[in-house]
Design a protein around this nucleic acid. Structure first.
Lengths: 347, 347
DNA sequence: AGGGTCTATGTAACCGCTTACGGTGAAACG
DNA sequence: CGTTTCACCGTAAGCGGTTACATAGACCCT
């Protein structure tokens, strides 16, 4: 690999000039600049990023905190791929890379345990990362708070954090839920239940509050037994639905806090001999792929999935270049009406 | 951030000793070692990875080549998340990180265009990456070949490459397909069609050959019109199915090279008034989430998704430490019988 | 002609760590 | 007791860039 020094010698200039050609081209004479560039091309010169990072004390990398081996093994993000697409392309536009940090297996580490904020923050400092993107992995808001307080710029997805250089992006969860439930109300339903995510999980809580708001708007009485907690996964939706169906006065409509749970509920309803949407209206949240494939196609609240990534990238870049954190970003969540609540069917 | 020098001063030793404590602990006296470690801990010392990479000429990062903005925009990998889970955890075990490379937006680059091998290889050299993992993004085997020939260690997923330091991991595509079609044969079908992926795509071609083998095994005559090409995506499955149904003698069973296309075919069949599996048996490939949710649940060939990542990580580490590339890894592909081909129903 | 400005470049220190090499003292040896 | 051996550690030279500062002309002005 050719180094700057070699180029300098071949061109009869100093290494400083070579460096300037690439970093402040306007300060170097056009003729010499071209000469340097030509030789650089001939030698297939690649500036050494390590050296560069060492002397500038900053890298062009953003860390991604995504715990795969969380307490709950096999934890899955509903739309990781879209999120990464948005994140990666937005970061690329700024010349930044995404680093998926490993925190384990390093004997050199001083005081790190695995998969906890300490390990990640260590890595962040060791690599002089520009910042961190935190992907919500269940309900560990406390861990995220530790990140936010650590001082490294970070933006969390789907969980509100607060720190000197931290912000977050989330969907309009309550608004989306409210629209979903209002839709059910508009279809004439009065016995509307909801299957929530894990209590304490922020998006879930916000969706629940949207559910309440919509009912209140409609002047309806929230029925205590109509709120059942799940964990965002399919099986919990099935279980929750079974509990709802066992009620004296089972609901005629259900708003689930995730599509996965909605699908689970659908299976339970079907198993109980109910037909959706005729006997039971169902709305989900997320608009993952499954939603449009399931039969009947699921009415749901769509999130701007790549938008999460893009917004996160923007927020990080703003903190890196600008300084202070900007306010939280709230992405729109939009009701997508399909077949599972009978809107089309009634018409 | 504390540096090695500071620690050295506080401990009354030289920086060399500090470095040794972390890299060759056995060569330093126990007492001083502990002293250094203690001070390091107090000062929250983090070795600077840039400096380290600079002097050792190697980093602990593996690059991930995953073109999101491919020719075909919106290209999606059927099971990226599982693959990443496997990849990341296996790399972490070796203390390696995964770097999602950006190749655009860098004025400093000498001769790079976007999203092509050149750009990625540039970045690989600039960052002294240990190697590259190439995710198949459609049918660009030529581009992959360029990577493989570039000399940087790389392992490709689902496309055979050949190079001085390159290898690949793939599923037993033909074996899986063969099992799937044999299953259909076993159910008594004789008019078995297949919907392939894009011609030239290696997994697709292998699956097609498995299809042929199974038919030959059964002594059946391959019907030319029964092989229809798709592009792995749902819509193409629908279109292909429509073409098959328009045949004079439509098939009674279809093996699709991907679950997405199988779902597309399912929709087409349903739209044509056919009932699956009674009027048409259907088998897919991949075993993505949708497969088990669709109605009827899809019989399909499951791939070891995290296994891809793990195998890739192993292969890369072997090339980094060992030297020469090992042979290609072929993961088992296993038939998962569900409801879409009537096996259960017949019994 | 002397002084002030500007532009273009060179000099050299520095970033923080690794490592080849050499030195020191104590133990072991003949 | 002189010499070898060995464990331990320091010295210093990189690694490949960046950048503050100095320098040297060229140009312009009074």
């Amino acid at each position: 690999m050719a180094t700057g020094r070699e180029i300098a010698q071949l061109c009869g200039v100093s290494v400083a000039t070579v460096s300037r050609v690439f970093n402040q081209p306007e300060t170097v004479n056009e003729e010499t600049r071209e000469r340097v560039l030509r030789v650089a091309k001939e030698l297939d010169y690649r500036p050494n990023e390590s050296a560069r990072a060492l002397s500038t004390k900053q890298s062009t990398m953003i860390g991604l905190v995504w715990d795969t081996d969380h307490r709950r093994p096999g934890w899955r993000h509903p739309y990781l791929q879209d999120l990464l697409i948005g994140l990666k392309s937005a970061l690329s536009a700024h010349g930044y890379h995404l680093l998926m940090l490993a925190t384990s297996g390093d004997a050199r580490e001083v005081g790190a345990s695995l998969a906890d904020p300490v390990g990640y923050v260590n890595m962040t400092r060791r690599h002089h990362l520009g910042g961190l993107v935190l992907i919500d992995s269940g309900s560990d808001a406390e861990a995220f708070e530790a990140f936010a307080q650590s001082g490294v710029p970070c933006v969390a997805l789907d969980v509100a954090v607060d720190g000197p250089r931290a912000t977050y992006v989330t969907s309009d969860n309550s608004g989306g839920a409210r629209a979903a439930v209002a839709h059910l109300v508009g279809l004439g339903h009065t016995r509307i239940a909801t299957i929530t995510g894990p209590p304490g999980n922020q998006p879930s809580d916000a969706r629940l509050s949207g559910y309440h708001t919509a009912l209140r708007d409609a002047g309806a009485e929230p029925h205590a037994g109509y709120v059942v907690a799940g964990d965002f996964y399919r099986a919990s939706g099935t279980a929750a639905m079974q509990r709802l169906l066992a009620l004296d006065e089972p609901p005629t409509a259900v708003f689930a806090s995730s599509d996965e749970m909605a699908v689970g509920a659908l299976l339970a309803a079907r198993a109980a001999g109910l037909r959706v949407p005729r006997d039971l209206a169902l709305v989900g949240f997320d608009d993952i792929e499954i939603a449009s494939v399931v039969d009947p196609a699921l009415t749901t609240v769509a999130q701007d999935k790549p938008g999460f990534g893009v917004a996160a990238a923007k927020a990080i870049m703003a903190m890196i270049t600008g300084g202070g954190p900007e306010g939280p970003v709230v992405l729109p969540a939009q009701l997508v009406v399909r077949d599972s609540c009978g809107a089309r069917w009634r018409r």
